[in-house]
Nucleic acid binder design. Structure first.
Lengths: 326, 326
DNA sequence: TTGTAAGCGTTATCAC
DNA sequence: GTGATAACGCTTACAA
């Protein structure tokens, strides 16, 4: 079933059918005839042919570092809602924690497979920047800020600072478990925010109270062990993410300490599970779903030929809960 | 940059270039010439043109009910790894909890937008079955069994039965929090497995000890409240999923009961967070990531013209942890 | 082993 | 308003 057959059945030329489909000028009479035939046959134009002809694919490539993360899930949800509404489909590329894969996908998409790209960024290597410069396709970066590109990111610095303030309530010996500072947002900005809160309170900082780990709860667990072995006197532990904080808290509770009486804990991200455990995890809410929507909207703008780069820093909400002191 | 230009630059016909690209017969001499030109120009064939010409898109549609679920994330991870290796891309369709949307996507993909479909099924309405029958494209169903279709699913019945056995250790008054039985796997099979364990132990069942809810932790929390208000004497609560169980556990602990001394708890799915909370959540591990891989492999088979329908029931592992008695 | 030529199913540009 | 006609960039008989 193709446009020629439809044209024949309706007794018009295929150009007219095409115009009908694309809101061109068609007389009411022929309009009706064509509509009828289409209804009868259930005809749908071949999107492959349309892609070839129009150079538009109606697809957006979304590159994520891994699938198993609540924040990523929420952002994807936001993206998918907006894209769907705009008639776009989402080509999801899962880099599985590999920077090399991430670059591969970037190149793959760059070669005109998609009309636009949303990149969940973690770190920016030289290679990344080179790949981004070579890009012919509109792009929005999610989760990190990068000069010269449209991006949507969280206010990591201030979120961490305020979360640290809440954690430091009546506490002066505190440890920090974070991720590599190569990750500017989650690694660097959050740590700096934390340190800013310390400075504000006049609490001295000793780099040996810092432990670095990956993004999983197991990582947080091990990092807590390492940290607390080194500094059993710590009265509070800050996790760069809720997942890390939850891992750390598990170790702390397992080793005979009360939370928050002996050790207070806080994280960032407001994961669902954080409010279910006892005591409930103090955290900072990020508007992840909205971030995804925002990124998708900016990308739609860009794809519509609006060349304005935009940087959007999302807000946050501090959530004092059971793991910090009164 | 298209195949004609490459052909001109290499001094061959475009057919030869095409053959070169598709592993057809090309003399070593021309092979080298073409390779050189391609290296110089960075030429990549237009996948849109290839799609139109070959009727293959190299894309697989994956329909999920929602994004925010650890089990779904893990299955997607498995799918993406296998598809990637086979050179396919993943078109992710998020139905956002809407059956209507799910059907829309099914139809959309059915119209030859993709070479194959993986459907994360929840319920099968008449409409679903009609849509599935009309499907021209290879399909694998994930998470549910459906006669006549290739599917990969969990052993929900036996997993629930064994989990219930472990929960019923020294306990005879027990409640069950589940989801709608329209969902044959998570709703029906798990409940039946649970009831089978009860029967085995000779424990009578009273339907008023059943509460039904959605998939979120909040749902589990509320269902626990409803259930425990009705039956304060319950000594154990079974959640059809870990998320539900965690929600229920939060309510139980919040209301002054000790887990597992006063009330034992178990769930299904082995979510990461389950092993981090104290006491740690007893559960059943499902091989979700492997399920995704399996589904993708079967789909690849199907797309290769192997018309063998396959049903794969995945195994499980029972994980007694802190929320059940000795 | 290579080239010619005929599509794949659309949309866009023209005349009419 | 409408209909020829020419692309879009590729693959694949078929012939050489």
């Amino acid at each position: 079933m193709n446009i020629n057959e439809i044209a024949n059945m309706a007794g018009v030329s295929r150009a007219t059918v095409s115009r009908f489909l694309n809101d061109g000028y068609v007389s009411t009479e022929k309009r009706e005839r064509i509509q009828k035939v289409i209804d009868q046959t259930g005809y749908k134009p071949s999107s492959q042919a349309q892609m070839l002809r129009t150079k538009r694919t109606g697809q957006v490539g979304v590159i994520i570092p891994f699938t198993d993360s609540e924040s990523i899930s929420r952002m994807i949800s936001g993206i998918s809602v907006v894209l769907r509404q705009a008639g776009f489909q989402m080509l999801l590329a899962n880099a599985e924690n590999s920077v090399r894969e991430e670059l591969e996908y970037l190149k793959l998409f760059a070669e005109n497979q998609v009309d636009g790209i949303i990149l969940f960024a973690t770190v920016f290597s030289r290679e990344h920047k080179k790949a981004l410069e070579a890009l012919q396709v509109p792009l929005v970066i999610l989760g990190q800020r990068l000069d010269g590109y449209s991006c949507v990111y969280q206010d990591d610095f201030n979120a961490a600072k305020e979360a640290a303030r809440m954690l430091l309530n009546g506490v002066d010996r505190v440890g920090y478990i974070g991720v590599s500072e190569q990750n500017k947002a989650i690694g660097r900005a959050r740590k700096l925010g934390f340190l800013a809160a310390l400075r504000e309170k006049g609490i001295p900082w000793d780099e040996s109270c810092y432990a670095e780990c990956g993004f999983s709860a197991e990582d947080g667990y091990q990092a807590a062990e390492e940290l607390m072995d080194r500094h059993p006197e710590l009265k509070a532990v800050f996790g760069a993410t809720d997942t890390i904080a939850l891992g750390a808290m598990a170790w702390i509770q397992e080793n005979g300490k009360q939370v928050p009486e002996d050790v207070a804990v806080a994280g960032i991200g407001d994961m669902t599970l954080g409010k279910l455990i006892r005591p409930s995890l103090s955290s900072v809410h990020f508007y992840y779903q909205a971030s995804g929507q925002e990124a998708a909207r900016i990308l739609l703008d860009l794809m519509n030929g609006n060349p304005t780069n935009k940087e959007v820093k999302m807000g946050y909400r501090v959530l004092p809960r059971g793991t910090v002191r009164g």
